[in-house]
Amino acid sequence: MRARGLIAEAERLHSHEFAAALAAAESEMEEILPGHASEEVRTLLDAEETRVNEALLLAEILVPLIAEKINLARPSTEQVSVRAPAPHPRASARPAAVPRHRDDPAPSIADLIDGMLGQENSAH
């Protein structure tokens, strides 16, 4: 949800539904392992958080390397040298959106709509 820009919604889920589910899990475990429930659940969650963080780190390192490899593999005619357009006084360079290369597969319409809904949600 955070990746889709639904940050507020993700926060809400985390602090309400997720917290409630966690409390329920802890109380169930308390019946099975009296005195150890909360510790067991915390260990599980910590392990999960470490796993996700490591995956993110790996992705951050690997993605630029892979992208570089792909660019090197492209035929040199694709490396068009671009004459920058005349600057416009009010224009600022496009910040976040990474334009897709024209060889990229076309995005699905439903994904584009998701992008729109994500923007609407984060605007609210």
């Binding site: 068009v80 671009v82 920058a84 357009p85 005349a86 600057p87 416009h88 009010r90 224009a91 600022s92 360079a93 496009r94 990474v98 334009p99 897709r100 290369h101 024209r102």
Partner: peptide
């Protein structure tokens, strides 16, 4: 002016 503003938002590898 709106046209050139939007062109300026495109990155250099997509603008051509």
């Amino acid at each position: 002016p709106a046209l050139t503003t939007l062109i300026a938002r495109a990155s250099s590898d997509s603008v051509v």
